[in-house]
Design a protein around this nucleic acid. Structure first.
Length: 487
RNA sequence: CGGGGCGUGGCGCAGCCUGGUAGCGCACACGCUUGGGGUGCGUGUGGUCGCCGGUUCAAAUCCGGCCGCCCCGACCA
């Protein structure tokens, strides 16, 4: 209590990033802790963001040709054993159901940590011919991973996600699908969430258990740490062999299918908070904001109240007709100043203030959440609001991405000396993306991780072909890689 | 599992050392006031002090045991 002088404000971001992050989520009422350790409760404002994001991504996924389906929460424990790498990767964090109906089960069930096994079990029964391919399914569901350490949105014991699973006749087609989905995620996250990303291949150490290749999109958070925002895996024939997904090709030859899987989760909400939030609270990109515009009426005397509310209602109607998600804050008993702060905390992109002076002048005041200081406010002629506001919302969406991209680029550095890399990672705000030559050997990667706590986030695609010296061992390195401390 | 810390109205805490039957801020309810950046005042609701046992005339306070949570580390697509 001693140092929290003013509990109207959240912990400043610069003072304690982790505390700031929790404060924002709780105060903006996105989510709350649950009685079960590590689990999260999504409150309506947080769930609305998830719904908006889900609806848009669902649309984009379907455009690629995948269809939605739903597979069971429970999976026979033996299924997990079938793929060696997979079981090794997930066994420690799986929740197991041993009893049902008051009796001990013959075979324990696991609660899905991901659905590769049960989906592939079904794929084996549905795929017989090359004419059954490609088979491209997606499901929106919850999964459970018994994490030792949890954080709101970023790592919770139960989380929501989508997982896509596809089977193809050829290696090339499956590889193409893996990259198509990576690009789908990249476009979606940048355009819709206004979160800029780097993307590329994962190192062997960071690869999905059972995958031949894992691709990732990674964002850089406000504290300089990286966050994996989505992954797309080329599974090769590993699961096809384990689950016997076989088909007859055009030459009547028996072949194993080539597969992919890909997913994004409610972790994206954490990215949204950490990339855009400030000391005033959340800043939501208009595309995901369930309320894009809030109108705050201001008055003193009863006769003013009537005029102001009337003007507010007109603006509300005009915006609603223009397709803007808008609401009027008619609460009485709280001051306009309180409402300003309240809606800023909740991240509403644009606030419109209407007071007696504005009504008299035929104007309104528009306050942008993406800007700070005097430039954030401007006057709009009332009659033009319906056309000006959608344009403003577009500008806010773009500007949030620009701000975030500038921050990411400013915090991405090339290093050619190991000491310089280590110095960068050690500092107080130590972090950001380190763009370095890495020979690809696990021992060099391990040395970096153990000494700097930075891990390989991605090996960018489409690199210029050039050879440098590995930052650790000095041996020839065919590629650059991006390392960072990660969540 | 190792190291550290904490359990007192919904939240944040004081009280514990030096036992005497619980208090402050916020939030909440009502009223008046205020209203262009978190208005002010008043009244009020709400707590078997984590649990069990012991000492004592008397335990939030002292003693013993247990449980839970948080932070750091190990771990983690």
């Amino acid at each position: 209590m001693a140092y929290k002088q003013d509990d109207k404000k959240v912990t400043p971001r610069s003072q304690d990033f982790a505390a700031w992050y929790n404060d924002i989520i709780l105060r903006a009422e996105l989510a709350d802790y649950s009685p079960v350790r590590g689990c999260i409760v999504f409150r309506p404002d947080g769930f609305a963001v998830w719904e908006a994001l889900r609806d848009e991504l669902d649309r984009r996924i379907k455009e690629t040709g995948a269809r939605n389906a739903y597979f069971p929460l429970f999976i026979p424990q033996s299924f997990l054993q079938k793929e060696a790498q997979h079981v090794q990767g997930f066994a420690p964090e799986v929740a197991v159901v041993t009893h049902g109906g008051g009796k001990e089960l013959e075979e324990p069930l696991i609660v899905r940590p991901t659905s590769e096994t049960i989906i592939n079990h079904m794929f084996a029964q549905w795929i017989h011919s090359h004419r059954d391919l490609p088979l491209m399914l997606n499901q929106w569901c919850n999964v459970v991973r018994w994490e030792m350490r949890t954080r709101l949105f970023l790592r919770t014991a139960e989380f929501l996600w989508q997982e896509g699973h596809t089977a193809h006749a050829t290696r090339e087609e499956a590889e193409r699908e893996t990259l198509t989905m990576l690009e789908t995620y990249r476009g979606f996250i940048e355009e819709f969430l206004a979160v800029p990303l780097i993307y590329g291949r994962k190192s062997a150490a960071e690869r999905f258990p059972g995958a031949e290749e894992t691709y990732t999109v990674e964002g850089l958070m406000g504290d300089g740490r990286a966050l994996q925002c989505g992954t797309s895996h080329f599974l090769g024939q590993n699961f096809a062999k384990a689950f016997e997904i076989r088909f007859l090709d055009e030459q009547n030859q028996m072949q194993f299918a080539w597969q992919t899987s890909w997913g994004v989760s409610t972790r994206l909400l954490g990215a949204l908070v950490m990339v855009h939030g400030d000391d005033q609270g959340l800043r939501l990109p208009p595309a995901v904001a369930s309320t894009q515009v809030v109108i705050v009426p201001i008055w003193r005397k009863p006769e003013e109240r009537e005029k102001v509310l009337h003007a507010a209602a007109n603006v509300f109607q005009a915006l609603k007709t223009a397709g803007v998600r808008v609401r009027v804050d008619e609460r009485e008993g709280v001051t306009p100043g309180f409402k300003f702060n309240d809606w800023e905390m909740r991240g509403v992109p644009l606030r419109i203030e209407i007071g007696p002076r504005d009504v008299a002048a035929g104007e309104v005041v528009a306050a942008r959440r993406d800007l700070a200081g005097p430039t954030a406010k401007s006057k709009l002629v009332s009659s033009t609001v319906a056309e000006r506001v959608p344009a403003l919302l577009n500008e806010i969406q773009k500007n949030l991405l620009t701000q975030a991209r500038d921050a990411m680029l400013a915090n991405t550095r090339q290093f050619d000396s190991y000491d310089a890399l280590r110095a960068q990672m050690e500092g107080e705000g130590g972090g950001g993306f380190a763009d370095i030559y890495w020979c690809g050997k696990a021992e060099c990667e391990t040395k970096i991780r153990e000494e700097t706590r930075a891990t390989c986030r991605a090996i960018p695609l489409d690199q210029k072909v050039e050879v440098g010296a590995c930052i650790v061992c000095g041996e020839p390195a065919p590629e650059r890689a991006l390392f960072a401390k990660a969540y």
